[in-house]
Design a protein around this nucleic acid. Sequence first.
RNA 1: GGCCCGUUCGUCUAUCGGUUAGGACGCCAGGUUUUCAACCUGGAAAGACGAGUUCGAUUCUCGUACGGGCUACCA
Length: 466
Amino acid sequence: MSQVVTRIAPSPTGFMHIGTARTALFNWLYARGRDGKFYIRIEDTDRKRSTEEANKVIINGLNWLGLNYDGDIISQFERAPRHVEIAEALLKNKKAYKCYSSPEEIQNFKENAKKSGASTLFKSPWRNVDPSEHPDSPYVIRIKSPETGVTNIQDEVQGDIIIKNNQLDDMVLLRSDGSPVYMLAVVVDDHDMGVTHVIRGDDHLNNAARQNLIYHAMGWNIPVYAHIPLIHGEDGKKMSKRLGATSIEEYEREGYPASGVRNYLARLGWSHGDEEYFTDQQALEWFNLDNIGKSPARFNLKKLQFLSGQHIKNTDDAALINEVKNFLKYDKNGSISEDKVELLNASLYCLKDKVKTFSELIDKAAFIFVNIPIKMSHDASLNLDEDAIKMLRTLTLHLSNATWTRDDLEQICNRVSEISGVKFGKLASPIRAALSGQTKTPSVFDMMLVLGRDETIARLNSVQGF
RNA sequence: GGCCCGUUCGUCUAUCGGUUAGGACGCCAGGUUUUCAACCUGGAAAGACGAGUUCGAUUCUCGUACGGGCUACCA
């Protein structure tokens, strides 16, 4: 079999929908897993919607998700002359015809048909009129769809779908202003781009029958179809902005790792036995069309979070630091200085196993980013009463000649809590407050280890008023 | 209205006629514990409904209900 070619064909709406991202991922996995090509084509024939900015949003989304594409991005709009050329070829072959019915006429017909309960399928009276009788007025070009028989869609996901040809109207190919219609453009572009596998949302399933008409009329090979069910929101309805994020950029902003999003999106509607967590390599190796489900899947944030946590845990430190730095441009901290990066790197061992997002990681690493004098949260300050300060004073003394290993620190802390006649928990809270100004932090030992002796003692002193 | 598609624990799914219907997230209980987490152990939890085919249906067929899509000179 020849090389696999897939494509993602988003329309420039100004943001990248999570569903578009998943479709892109499926196409990318299918192509890249088979040494094939993956292209982007922007469906910008509707000029009202498209802007440079909107294209950029799509490209940024794809880049962030790590879906690299081949060649240049293709603009459907720019290919209009070629679409017209095909429409004219069809006209010449008598596979299409000029229709002079006005929009008002058609509108009236449909309204009447609806009222009387008859089929609303418009049958143009111009279908078989000889060109010599054509008026000199605006016209559209319509395809001649077969009046009898059936059109068969062979779909890798949905199975064989049979649509009766009498359900298909003579769709418009070229508008009266001469511009091509989407249905024509898709077929021509897919054919010209050599697309072998059309993996797209199942809202196009019915359209596939119409598109097949054009393939047949041109004598072109029909691509392999895989119409995948759309993603729904947590409530089972279409994903809306009201419930959760719909654009891929929001997940980036919130600090989800791209690898986790890839894993989650791939697993949503597709499966490989019981595998839930997998790497890109595994996804590439395993992904196929056979195991895509037929029913729409609901988006579930908790599972995304779980998987994201797993991916962060399994990312090596150097790569993780890079991703976090990149994420920081969305965080209020902005960028961070090199010495803080070093501290962050040193603390990864006690952070990355426990967080689900980069933003959570930064939160937990807050003790790194504060400086003396440390601003106390209200809850933290409650842990610094007189008795506590006294304990900290004792602790500071013992700490000055500690060897600064975990064992040693634990021993010292235990001794101090013993001397003070309290359980370790009573001592840990003030330490935590002094070191971070917060009540939720990594273990006090981890903080001491990361901060080092000088900084630890300085912070402890600072709450004692030194 | 017509046509097309779908329906297994709350959610994502496994099962390709015979299973105590499996896994994962989430949830609940217990454990670990210096906070928050993370982690460990255990638990509850599903074949939309009704017929038919069959020795036997979650699985095959039909119907109903519910959900979704298409039915544009939108994409």
